[in-house]
């Protein structure tokens, strides 16, 4: 558990604030659909926007929620300027899903569980996910490698993700 930042504004340490929350904000932006570079930029802009104004901290959860909202607004602005549609239709629902996932440690525990759960998948399912998320292979490339149809590859990965979710829930229970 990382140390909470000071409560008093006069004692607010920007470095401590950034260190405490940057990982969570970055992962949140990635989950919203940002690529790593965009997540880097928006995380930076989020903290800059907050630190350039007076800020009173009322606790880790409230601060994390506030920073996420600022980050989301930054993302909306960037997407709007570039003419792209913002990917999330219901941000409140997304935030609830994120809170379930991230918990109090920016999702570290669930990521640890995910690493273990991946090892429990079948070889084919693990290979499919490896190709998808490590090698950036397309669905057709995965299908060709596994000698199945594209639809089959889609179902395989879908099932694998369901298994992973169930496995994580078991480990976190």
């Amino acid at each position: 558990m990382k140390p909470a930042i000071p409560q008093d504004r006069a004692d607010l340490d920007p470095a401590a604030l950034i260190e405490r929350y940057q990982v969570g904000i970055w992962r949140y932006l990635r989950a919203l659909g940002c690529d790593p570079a965009e997540a880097d930029d928006l995380t930076q802009e989020t903290f800059l926007a907050v630190l350039q104004h007076s800020f009173v901290d009322h606790g880790p959860a409230a601060t994390a929620a506030y920073l996420r909202r600022v980050a989301y607004n930054q993302l909306v602005t960037v997407r709007r300027r570039s003419g792209k549609v913002t990917a999330v239709e219901d941000i409140e629902q997304f935030d609830r899903a994120w809170d379930d996932w991230a918990g109090n440690d920016e999702g570290e525990a669930r990521l640890d569980a995910l690493r273990e759960c991946v090892q429990q998948l079948t070889d084919r399912a693990r290979m499919a996910l490896d190709m998808r998320f490590r090698d950036r292979a397309s669905r057709s490339e995965i299908a060709a490698m596994l000698a199945i149809s594209e639809h089959g590859a889609k179902n395989l990965m879908q099932r694998a993700k369901q298994q992973l979710r169930a496995c994580i829930e078991r480990k976190m229970a």
């Binding site: 990635r30 669930r110 990521l111 995910l114 991946v118 993700k161 992973l164």
Partner: peptide
């Protein structure tokens, strides 16, 4: 979950 997989894998 996919964003987690991008990190883990």
């Amino acid at each position: 979950l996919e964003s987690g997989l991008e990190e883990v894998l």
